[in-house]
Design a protein around this nucleic acid. Structure first.
Lengths: 142, 142
DNA sequence: ATCTCTTATGAGAACAATTCTTATTTAAGA
DNA sequence: TCTTAAATAAGAATTGTTCTCATAAGAGAT
């Protein structure tokens, strides 16, 4: 994932957010560390080049970015919040053996599910989004 | 959900777990508070009848029960861990407006997904379980 | 470029949820 | 009943996150 600073700036201003070095660094980190980094992963990464970005700032910026829909949160069973910079509809493969999480996109599956729920209504509930949580084993270690 | 103490005891000993009043109370609480209680919900509930079960004990027992597959943890996008005493394959409806979570069972859907992934393999990954996280709106308030 | 105003940030305290530590208690088999 | 390993209570410690508030810095207006 090769996102230039300029594109990041553009994304920020499209959302009406002030362009700050902290926000750029954090958003860039999420794109570089593209396997669903935790807040802590992000902090460690950006401290290399920006040693004095405060922890609180990172959490605040992450919240802002989630609110502006520039990133998403995902939650694991192990109670760690992770962030995801990929916003296209996709599912997640969760390892039952480790913390590993991978993206899984499948348009055909999405269409199948969409069709299914178009026909079969859930009483008292309006479906907005369906995310699969696919648990299993990764066959080759990364 | 009307699970007697005797059945709870049976479940515990089937798993090779010692039968303790704490474990019985906690497991019973999960069955009674059947809408995916948090650890705190469980603590509040059991303290009514067992005022001096320690907080740490509750967390430890919950871990034990999860390990023994007597209960499950559910992941939410919000950062609260919840416990579920229903072990049959089922999915969850998440409210996009509140903390409400409801169960959703659909055998036909499960078969459809099973068929789908029998045909379409995910390279490098062995699927063990598929859980849908269906986000949307509950039409009538509870 | 400078001014102004609003918003963002740094630093660290506060907080909530969970885990750890240790001495004591208890369940369950001998 | 005795024994022993496992479970528990109490509270300290840790972790991840949020809050507070004084200072700094964007961004539009001048």
């Amino acid at each position: 994932m090769n996102v230039s600073i300029d594109i990041i700036k553009e994304k920020l201003s499209e959302c009406g957010l002030k362009i700050t070095p902290q926000r750029i660094a954090i958003l860039e980190a999420i794109y570089v560390l593209n396997n669903h980094p935790t807040a802590d992963n992000i902090i460690t990464y950006i401290r290399k080049t920006h040693p004095n970005i405060a922890t609180g700032t990172v959490y605040k910026v992450l919240d802002t970015l989630v609110d502006s829909k520039l990133i998403k949160k995902i939650k694991t069973e192990k109670d760690i919040m992770r962030y995801d910079g990929i916003l296209d509809q996709h599912h997640h493969l969760f390892s039952s053996e480790s913390d590993r999480i991978e993206d899984y996109s499948d348009d055909k599956l999405d269409k199948l599910l969409e069709e299914y729920f178009k026909r079969k209504k859930i009483p008292g509930f309006k479906v907005e989004e369906i995310k699969l949580q696919i648990n299993g084993k990764f066959l080759k270690s990364k």
